[in-house]
Amino acid sequence: MRRFRRISLWRAGAPLALLCAGLLFATSATNARGTDLRPSRNTTLAGLVEEQSRRSASLVRQHAALTQDIEKLQAQQGSIDPKLSAELKELSEQVGTTPVTGPGLTVTLKDAPREVVKENPDVDADWLVIHQQDIQAVVNALWAGGADAISIQNHRVISTTGIKCVGNSVVLHGVPYLPPYKITAIGDRQKLQKALDDSQYIDNLQDYVVKFQLGYEVKNESSIAMPAYEGTLDLQSATVPGFEQTPSGSPTASGR
């Protein structure tokens, strides 16, 4: 009698177990959507940063293409006054929404080599990597040297461009980038170089370049084709140093 009950319970439980297994497989297939649920090599930080950068670049290109379509349609309809159109073109060059070409410099910044990091385990890790203030120092020096246009990682720098560190990457226009960092400027090469040489911050950075082999390289460029800024120009908020922040319906920001 006891044997009969055990067999009956097993026969009743087997279909239930199979049903649960089927539900689990179906749930996994739905969540996976045809992809592998197992972790892959792309889950590393570097892989995630590169994937996000590619995705953002694709969206920026789509935004730029749609903006060009709108401008073409407006031009065809003749909705823009010729005088206003000329002013718009001049302003777009100043803002950075127009491609430019010319001679200039490219400054490349790199973290310390891996072997140097291994040979200096007691050294503060922050001394062995490039930070946002290093990039900002180069950009500020190039502006001070009379640069007509600047790009970072081949992305145009405008008045609202922000540079900040997030982990071991630098975020530019909301997109993370890993080193090496390339800052390119169009302008008088001698004046640009002199501005870099006169920068006290860059002079201090050179100490780390010598001691820990941080990468700092300046290259003369006879001709640079710099793309236009393709992101949004919407400004969320801005404050003027020394003044209390007050709500405003049309916030403004100062230039560089």
Score class of each variant (00 low, 15 high):
Pro103Met: 00
Ser56His: 15
Arg55Ala: 14
Lys89Leu: 08
Ile135Ala: 00
Glu115Gln: 14
Ile70Pro: 06
Gln74Leu: 10
Asn120Cys: 09
Gly145Leu: 03
Leu73His: 08
Ala75Met: 03
Pro103Ile: 01
Gln94Ser: 12
Ala125Tyr: 11
Val60Thr: 12
His131Leu: 04
Asp69Ile: 04
Leu73Cys: 02
Glu115Ile: 15
Thr101Pro: 09
Gln77Ser: 10
Leu48Asp: 03
Lys118Thr: 09
His131Pro: 10
Gln62Lys: 13
Ala64Phe: 09
Val123Phe: 04
Val138Ser: 02
Asp148Thr: 13
Lys72Val: 13
Ser53Pro: 11
Gln133Glu: 12
Asp134His: 13
Gly96Thr: 01
Val139Ile: 09
Ile130Leu: 03
Pro103His: 00
Gly146Leu: 01
Gly145Tyr: 01
Pro121Thr: 02
Ser85Arg: 11
Leu105Tyr: 09
Glu87Arg: 14
Trp127Gly: 13
Arg54His: 13
Gly104Val: 09
Pro121Ile: 00
Thr108Gly: 04
Glu93Gly: 15
Glu93Cys: 06
Gln68Asn: 10
Glu71Arg: 15
Glu115Leu: 13
Val117Thr: 11
Gln132Tyr: 11
Arg55Cys: 03
Pro99Phe: 07
Leu59Val: 07
Leu66Phe: 12
Arg61Gly: 10
Ala144Val: 05
Leu109Thr: 02
Ser58Gln: 05
Asp69Trp: 05
Val95Ser: 01
Arg55Pro: 07
Asn140Cys: 01
Val95Thr: 03
Asp134Val: 06
Thr108Pro: 10
Leu105Ala: 03
Asp124Trp: 06
Trp143Gln: 06
Val123Lys: 05
Asp81Pro: 12
Asn120Phe: 10
Leu88Lys: 11
Glu50Trp: 04
Pro113Cys: 02
Glu119Asp: 15
His131Asn: 08
Pro113His: 05
Ser58Ala: 08
Asp126Arg: 14
Val60Lys: 09
Ile80Cys: 06
Lys72Ile: 09
Ala137Trp: 01
Val100Gln: 06
Ala65Asp: 01
Gly78His: 07
Asp148Cys: 05
Asp134Phe: 07
Leu84Pro: 07
Val49Arg: 02
Ile80Pro: 04
Thr98Phe: 12
Gly145Trp: 02
Gln76Gly: 06
Ser53Val: 11
Ala125Met: 09
Glu50Met: 07
Glu115Arg: 15
Ala75Val: 05
Thr67Trp: 02
Ile135Ser: 02
Asp81Leu: 08
Lys72Asp: 06
Ser92Thr: 03
Gln76His: 13
Thr108Trp: 01
Gly78Thr: 08
Thr106Phe: 07
Leu84Gly: 12
Pro82Cys: 00
Ala144Tyr: 07
Thr108Tyr: 02
Asp122His: 14
Ser56Phe: 15
Leu73Thr: 11
Lys118Tyr: 12
Leu109Asp: 00
Gln133Val: 15
Ile70Asn: 03
Leu84Ser: 12
Val49Trp: 11
Thr97Pro: 13
Gln62Ser: 11
Lys110Ser: 15
Gly102Gln: 01
Arg114Tyr: 09
Leu73Pro: 08
Gly102Leu: 03
Gly145Val: 08
Glu71Leu: 12
Glu90Pro: 07
Ser85Ala: 14
Arg114Ser: 09
Leu59Ala: 08
